[in-house]
């Protein structure tokens, strides 16, 4: 590409020349980047032709090259009928809440852990808080059903002690989403906080020392030093998290959903589960995946544009 442009008129040539100079100047960086780019090309770009399946009636024996193209048939199938819109709505609402509460939670946790001065307590808290990440939803759902049981669960026992009526959290349409959001936040908060702990660890102690001299309160230190210092990581997390608005947690919802809360808890992945995965309908599954990815991509690009306007920490 560059070589061809050499023949172009003077001004463009000069621009290209300076560009080439810039590439030449950064040659070691590109040398470093090369294996990574090669990795992405081989393991991510080469198999990408599989996206075509979403537009085909994919037949296993014929493969992608031989299967018949059917245009948007599978997308129409997905959006068809009375079921899809409520499911999309549930997905968006549940995930909006999950992002709203789940995004700041690990930052707050990391800040709180950071305030602990006793090293042993600090270590224990860090280690314990990341344990739930290792529990699968199958295991957790049994425990959650027990904890939230209206007749014998500890939560309702406390509520009754306080003079409230017991609540059947898992079967009550007005509570079910709260259960999903709070359990998800609880499960992931410790593991996600690790990223912020690492970012906090990278802050130069000079800044705190200077603040110490000025006699600034702890909360102000958090506000004026810690948060601005970890802002780049926070921004990138906001951008990447914005894409998760469409990606629901299948395992969680599949294991906690029951017939009475279907109307508020059924989401895209549980809705498409039987069709796509269990029934060998590869094209349908591919269409669902593509639809979700396009939404996620739009979200991320939007968040990125906003981030670029207000900071210099956007992805690109």
């Amino acid at each position: 590409m560059q070589r061809k442009s050499m023949a172009l008129p003077h001004a463009a040539e000069r621009r290209n020349y300076s560009l080439l100079r810039r590439y030449a100047k950064h040659k070691y960086y590109f040398l470093m980047l090369l294996p990574v780019l090669a990795y992405f090309i081989i393991f991510h770009y080469v198999p990408i032709y599989g996206v075509l399946m979403a537009f085909q009636d994919y037949r296993i024996f014929k493969g992608i090259s031989g299967s018949e193209f059917v245009g948007l048939k599978h997308f129409r199938e997905l959006f068809d009928g009375i079921y899809f819109l409520p499911v999309l709505k549930n997905t968006l609402i549940i995930n909006a809440y999950k992002i709203l509460f789940g995004f700041p939670a690990p930052i707050i946790l990391a800040l709180l852990i950071n305030e602990i001065m006793r090293p042993r307590f600090k270590k224990w808290v860090q280690t314990i808080s990341y344990l739930p990440h290792f529990l699968s939803w199958i295991v957790l759902s049994g425990i959650i059903i027990e904890v939230l049981s209206p007749s014998r669960g500890i939560v309702n026992m406390i509520l009754m002690e306080l003079g409230f009526q017991p609540v059947y959290f898992l079967a009550d349409t007005s509570w079910f989403r709260s259960v999903l959001v709070s359990t998800e936040v609880w499960k992931g908060v410790g593991f996600s906080a690790i990223i912020y702990l690492a970012a906090i660890a990278g802050i130069s102690p000079d800044l705190y020392e200077a603040a110490e001299v000025d006699g600034i309160s702890r909360l102000k230190k958090v506000w004026y030093i810690t948060l601005p210092s970890i802002a780049p990581v926070i921004v990138i997390m906001i951008i990447l998290n914005s894409g998760s608005i469409i990606n629901d947690d299948f395992d969680q919802i599949f294991n906690l959903l029951n017939t009475n809360v279907q109307s508020v808890g059924d989401v895209i992945s549980t809705y498409t589960y039987t069709e796509g995965i269990a029934k060998m309908n590869y094209s349908y599954a591919a269409a669902v995946g593509l639809f979700k990815n396009v939404i996620a991509l739009i979200m991320v690009l939007t968040a990125n544009t906003i981030a670029r306007r207000f900071s210099d920490q956007a992805i690109f």
Binding site: G142, I145, E146, S149, P150, S151, Y168, L170, A171, N258, T259, N260
Partner: peptide
């Protein structure tokens, strides 16, 4: 049993 919704099999 009102808790039939979450099922009599709890694991």
């Amino acid at each position: 049993d009102p808790e039939f919704i979450t099922g009599e099999n709890t694991g």
